[in-house]
């Protein structure tokens, strides 16, 4: 029979705490997106995913986005996006942790991240062009032009929220994470 040592228990505790943390962060992301659904493209999702990517890291953020996409498309009272569009939605959101873990890793200022958020507002809209054009047969140029106002709203929403709220939220989340990890190092429980 396998004997479990203190390292196994510690790892198990860490995994449980990580799971709880990821679930809470995914819940915050989901609830705010639902609460702001009445306002087209105005949301804190980009801010939160940038925050998670910077504070929690790539692995946890990937899991949060995965849960969010599944939960949003299953539970949203406004209905899911077209099933053919879901992979594109997932890839679009994943661009944030991927870029912030690789070629944009050194960007840490709120202005720099806000500019990334602004640009992402357009990229997010463009990610839906392939399914719109090739699956639902929407005309390319018309779709591109008609979507621009919505992309602009998302871009500005991303810029303002990241520019003003990233630093204070990062401070709060980092403090909480340090307490959390401090407990972990001392072998204590939450």
């Amino acid at each position: 029979m396998k004997q479990y040592g203190s390292d196994d228990v510690s790892l198990s505790h860490k995994a449980i705490k990580d799971t709880a943390l990821i679930a809470i962060c995914a819940a915050v992301l989901f609830v705010q997106q639902l609460a702001l659904s009445v306002l087209p493209n105005i949301q804190f999702s980009t801010l939160l995913i940038v925050l998670y990517a910077k504070v929690l890291g790539f692995r946890r953020t990937t899991l949060i986005i995965t849960i969010h996409i599944i939960a949003y498309n299953l539970l949203s009272p406004f209905g899911s996006v077209l099933p053919t569009h879901i992979p594109f939605m997932y890839v679009a959101w994943m661009l944030i942790p991927i870029s912030l873990s690789t070629f944009l890793k050194k960007v840490n200022s709120s202005l720099g991240l806000a500019l990334i958020g602004f640009f992402f507002g357009f990229v997010y809209g463009w990610m839906f062009i392939p399914p719109a054009v090739f699956i639902t047969n929407a005309p390319f140029w018309t779709y591109l032009v008609m979507d621009l106002p919505f992309e602009m709203v998302m871009a500005v929403s991303n810029f303002i929220t990241i520019y003003w709220l990233f630093e204070p939220l990062k401070k709060v989340l980092t403090e909480q994470l340090m307490k959390f990890e401090g407990h972990e190092k001392n072998g204590g429980s939450l």
């Binding site: 621009l148 106002p149 810029f159």
Partner: peptide, 17 residues
């Protein structure tokens, strides 16, 4: 900076309307 970004967005949306 925030006001400038909002103004640019409003003008762009107005032009696209």
């Amino acid at each position: 900076i925030s006001v400038m970004v909002i103004l640019v967005a409003l003008v762009t949306i107005r032009l696209l309307t």
